[in-house]
């Protein structure tokens, strides 16, 4: 099995590793870099649990090969909170609105929602439901998650106006 040296920026830090051609970005993040916040729940691109951003776009890291991330800027769920543990606005909204229970799908949702609200800062409820329909959750019935997205959008817009 051919091996490749790769370099990329993950959560603001230059990282490197040696991967097989077939190694997914998700496996590289989890096993190569020890960033276990990215979760694998289907490994066939449906559930969204492994969502990270690559060069600003939300992608499913189970469907991307690690070698494709060569030179890219990757953000995982570990990269959202402040160094002191201060939650990002999206993370805080999930906590305030009970947008998680078992937490396994949560990193994927948080990453998807972060990217979604950057693209659509003022979504309607049906846009929110459509926007997060690429992520599966089995615990919450999505009600707390939809509420969290609404709350995060409101707070982010308020912060924008105040800035």
């Amino acid at each position: 099995m051919a091996e490749h040296h790769i370099r990329c920026t993950v959560n603001g830090q230059a990282r490197r590793g040696i991967v097989e051609s077939r190694t997914t970005l998700a496996d590289f993040l989890r096993e190569g870099l020890g960033l276990t916040g990215t979760h694998l729940a289907c490994e066939h691109g449906v559930c969204g649990a492994c969502t990270v951003t690559v060069d600003g776009r939300a992608i499913r890291s189970c469907l991307m090969l690690a070698v494709q991330a060569e030179g890219a800027t990757v953000t995982t769920v570990e990269g959202l909170a402040g160094a002191d543990g201060t939650l990002s606005p999206v993370q805080q909204a999930f906590m305030d609105a009970h947008g998680l229970q078992c937490g396994f799908c949560t990193p994927g949702f948080v990453m998807s929602v972060t990217a979604f609200l950057e693209a659509n800062p003022d979504p309607t409820d049906s846009e929110i439901r459509e926007g997060i329909s690429g992520n599966l959750c089995r615990c919450t019935g999505y009600q707390g998650i939809v509420e969290a997205v609404r709350l995060a959008a409101t707070r982010l817009r308020a912060a924008e106006v105040g800035a």
Partner: peptide, 19 residues
């Protein structure tokens, strides 16, 4: 009250068996 579980689960600091 807010959940004690949430900060770790929201930041990728949960510890599941595959971790």
């Amino acid at each position: 009250v807010q959940r004690k579980e949430d900060p770790r689960l929201l930041t990728g600091h949960g510890r599941y068996v595959d971790d």
